[in-house]
Design a protein around this nucleic acid. Structure first.
Length: 583
DNA sequence: GCCTAAAGCGCG
DNA sequence: ACCGCGCTTTAGGC
């Protein structure tokens, strides 16, 4: 029962939780003060949110998206927008754009532990229940705390050096949080039989137990031991393998594949084969399939904002490291398609845009950026252009990259100057920021310590070396941070725009997809995969062409949102197919 | 026995 | 001597 129903003009709706597990909601009109909070019993939350979503689609303000949204999605409730206080706090506490960061330094606004395990965030009935969570003596996310933190964050943005950019960043970050929960709910359509077929083809038939080695792996191991003349050689432990190799006359300093490939010995080829198969089995073998794929849906755990640069991380399931050899297992449901897209050279293009380098923008216009560099600089091949460009963004100083960099500096002085300045700032211990205002964390005390030690009168040569190395390490980090971080912001804006448009598609009848992907996503196109600069949308076949257009248009919209009036093209490679067979 | 670090390799 | 990650296995300290 609500005595004080929120006005339909509510722009924000703040949600806090009471120690009992029930919720309190305070509506905030545009430019207004929060209204008196109303109590929402935990059991009524989904219906309550759905009602408000239908009437005014407010921006939901809550402490931590997965803690609330997984439950809403499982009840069939999707929300349009949110403000994730935990993620936004993380950004604001170190953003150089914020004038008074002290308000964020002292607070304890730690996110709860992320959900672990393959079943934690599924759309199925098995899920954690909000009202059975143990009540703590002081719930840090009660409505008063939520409102106070939200006000602090709004104030920080409004008084910042770049309110528009920061507001966009916080909105994009929060949209990312919604998308991560939605990816978990919908799942990635995964063909378990195809995965098993790939494993069987490479490794041999599935053994009866996990402990048993598959036949082809065992055979490769036998060939290695025979070639070494050492029937007991241990192949799985690097130190033991190293001694076994040395006994056979292979004096390698490590067992990494790149070094081993240098040696001419009959044991090398089967050993490299063994390592490859072993990796496939342990990382993405049958055990992985059993643990992470249920009902032909793969549900990894994504962590938005999990990387300092703003990229997503993952925790469980290895979503960001899926080997390309398993991509064919990624398959649309019958009657559905996969719309796959990746951005060509996202990071160099982000650099061109943020540095305002007209020559580089022009090199990337309407074509492959690296080819464009060949056409507009003294660099002669696409491969060389790529190596030079990556070297510029990573801070290479020697080798082929180092040799090619002067050419790049002459052709693109604005872009190169931009990353060089970011590196210099980092080497001095300073902070750098992405285009929208995510900044590097302050230097570690150890780093500062090393620098002061080296500048004191009694400093040894070793002290100075250590300090210089640490400074250069940090310079490479800050150099890359501005590029990787801005690329991540572009990708978030792209994702958010895709998501927004997909929600408007009409529903289709699809029992299988609805059963596997849940009530919200089983009947219309939905994001199914995200990996830094690529997305996959799972779409009813009849909508696939329209979805493709949405994905393409979203790239233009993202570019316009971030770099208003900029002249950098963000080109996509896009395909519509049953399988993700990208090579 | 538990925990952390490092090696090695997968992804962008 | 080129950035950012996660995962599995093994080694080694306690």
């Amino acid at each position: 029962m609500q005595e004080n129903p929120p006005l339909p003009t509510a722009h924000w709706c703040a949600l806090g939780q009471m120690p009992s597990g029930d919720f309190m909601m305070a509506a905030i009109a545009a430019g207004g003060e929060p209204q008196e909070p109303v109590v929402v019993p935990a059991n009524d939350l989904a219906a309550f949110v759905a009602g408000l979503e239908a009437s005014s689609a407010p921006r939901w303000v809550w402490h931590h998206t997965p803690a609330i949204y997984a439950t809403l999605l499982a009840s069939g409730v999707r929300v349009e927008r949110c403000h994730d206080l935990t993620l936004c706090h993380q950004i604001l506490r170190s953003s150089e754009f914020v004038r008074d960061r002290s308000a964020f330094q002292l607070l304890d606004w730690a996110a709860p532990e992320p959900p672990q395990g393959p079943t934690a965030a599924t759309a199925g009935p098995a899920r954690f229940d909000l009202d059975t969570q143990p009540a703590t003596s002081r719930n840090p996310f009660e409505i008063t705390d939520v409102l106070r933190e939200f006000e602090r964050q709004r104030n920080a943005v409004n008084t910042s050096a770049r309110p528009g950019r920061l507001a966009l960043l916080l909105a994009a970050e929060s949209a990312g949080a919604l998308i991560a929960s939605e990816l978990a709910a919908a799942g990635l359509p995964w063909d378990s039989r195809e995965h098993d077929r790939i494993l069987t083809e490479s490794l041999g038939p599935r053994p009866a137990t996990y402990a048993e080695k598959p036949a082809k792996l065992a055979a490769a191991g036998d060939r290695v031991r025979a070639a070494l003349g050492d029937p007991n050689a241990s192949l799985d432990s690097p130190p033991k393998l190293l001694t076994a190799l040395r006994r056979a006359g292979i004096h390698a300093s490590s067992t990494s594949q790149w070094e081993l490939a240098e040696y001419d010995h009959p044991a090398i080829a089967p050993l490299l084969e063994y390592k490859k198969l072993s990796r496939l089995l342990t990382a993405n073998g049958w055990a992985w399939l059993d643990e992470w794929v249920t009902d032909d849906r793969y549900r990894p755990v994504y962590l938005p904002g999990g990387v300092v640069t703003g990229r997503w991380a993952s925790s469980g399931g290895g979503a960001l490291q899926l080997p390309r050899s398993l991509r064919p297992a990624l398959r649309a449901d019958p009657g559905w398609k996969l719309v796959s897209a990746d951005v060509s050279q996202l990071e160099p293009r982000a650099l061109a845009a943020m540095s305002g380098d007209r020559a580089m923008a022009s090199a990337g216009r309407g074509k492959d950026l690296y080819e464009g560099i060949v056409r507009s600089s003294a660099i002669e091949s696409r491969d060389e252009a790529k190596i030079a460009m990556l070297g510029a963004m990573y801070g290479a100083t020697s080798g082929e990259s180092g040799r090619l960099l002067p050419h790049l500096r002459r052709a693109f002085p604005a872009a190169m100057g931009f990353v060089d300045r970011a590196a210099e700032t980092g080497e001095r211990g300073g902070a750098v920021s992405t285009w929208l205002g995510r900044s590097t964390p302050p230097v570690e005390p150890d780093w500062q310590e090393a620098q002061s030690l080296a500048s004191q009168p009694g400093a040894t040569q070793r002290d100075e070396q250590n300090a210089r190395r640490a400074a250069r390490d940090r310079g490479r980090f800050t150099r890359n941070f501005v590029v990787q971080g801005t690329a991540a912001e572009w990708a978030l804006a792209w994702l958010a725009e895709i998501r927004r448009n997909l929600a408007a598609f009409p529903e289709v009848q699809s029992d299988r997809a609805a059963a596997a992907s849940g009530p919200v996503f089983g009947r219309r196109p939905h994001l199914a995969f995200f990996l830094h600069d690529e997305i996959i949308v799972h779409s009813p076949a009849e909508h696939a062409d329209a979805v493709a257009q949405v994905v393409l248009d979203a790239a233009d919209t993202a570019a316009e949102l971030l770099f208003r009036g900029g002249d950098v093209d963000f080109r996509l490679d896009l395909s519509i197919s049953d399988r993700a067979t990208k090579s």
